[in-house]
Design a protein around this nucleic acid. Structure first.
Lengths: 170, 170
DNA sequence: TGGCGACCTTTGACATTTCAAATATCTGCT
DNA sequence: AGCAGATATTTGAAATGTCAAAGGTCGCCA
């Protein structure tokens, strides 16, 4: 299958107009976006193939995994960067599958707390181990120093972006 | 509104187990993912607010913009990294809005070629200009040298990932 | 010339996504 | 007590996303 050649074409050919050259910020963004998309899709494929799970489910379970007491849906929403309405459905399906359980605490009946079931803990532990391995595999060709350096540099990107969001004009 | 504080919590708190420390590759991945998500969402908000358009529509139009003769849907699918089935609907809606036109070439009736209409060209040009500005804004706090360096380093990430995809075992 | 296999797009079933509006519940103030 | 405003979640509509299967069309070869 001529699947591989498709991969190099990619999003990076976006915008940068007929004129040709585009601003470095735009180039960087397009490369970040296409790289992230590429890796995400690979992870999604493998999660599906090996565990029958989706990436959003994995993300959600990851948050619950490190909070044994569970999380309110609003907290889950913030941490997964997913809207409230979306969390509702995600949790619903995970509950139907028996990996997550919903509880309403006594104190406040507006609140719903989601936590992993035992089956959920077991499944997630397996997925997390595989997931980490996949990443090491996919990043195997990168100089280890570069990995750390990149982590740090991308931190500045994130900070900068955070400081220039239109929404949060408090 | 306590919107800003949510942003720093984020995906990065994924996985890395109860044990704490996680592999550098995983940390890098989580940071790339959360940063990309953050910026994507901001762009989506602004596209919607200022142009009533969605990000996938923008992406698709970007591809068509630089190919005046249009693209076959399969090509569009590869370049936007979106599945075939998805492209069908995307193009359908853009056609309904009058920004894209579908044509079946004489030679091969299996093929559908999509191209921007005049209205599409005009709209996209405006969006692209704004889009580039938003990115420069969001990346304003980054050292310009770092922007270029990052672009290059992320290239190695992309290459490495590409070389370790499970799918393309040709 | 008939048909098989390859190629291109659409369709259908689901899951995820966002936004906005609707529900429920709680809190504090009068 | 009682209600206004703040909080928390759900719902509903529309778009996007995947995958697998189905539909056409084409090319080639026996």
């Amino acid at each position: 299958m001529a699947e591989a050649e498709a991969i190099d074409i990619d999003l990076e050919i976006i915008v940068q107009g007929a004129h040709g050259r585009s601003k470095p910020e735009l180039r960087l963004w397009l490369r970040m976006l296409s790289t992230t998309k590429l890796i995400s899709q690979e992870i999604r494929r493998r999660l599906r193939a090996e565990f029958g799970a989706t990436l959003p489910q994995f993300d959600l379970m990851a948050q619950l995994y490190r909070e044994k007491d569970g999380l309110r849906l609003g907290e889950l929403s913030k941490r997964t960067m997913v809207t409230n309405g979306n969390v509702t459905g995600l949790v619903e399906r995970l509950e139907a599958d028996g990996y997550v359980q919903r509880v309403t605490p006594d104190g406040d009946r507006r609140v719903t707390v989601a936590k992993l079931t035992e089956a959920g803990v077991i499944l997630f532990a397996a997925m997390a181990a595989a997931h980490e391995g996949w990443l090491q595999d996919m990043m195997a060709d990168i100089d280890p120093h570069a990995v750390t350096a990149l982590w740090s540099e991308i931190g500045t990107v994130k900070t900068s972006a955070n400081n220039h969001l239109a929404a949060a004009f408090e």
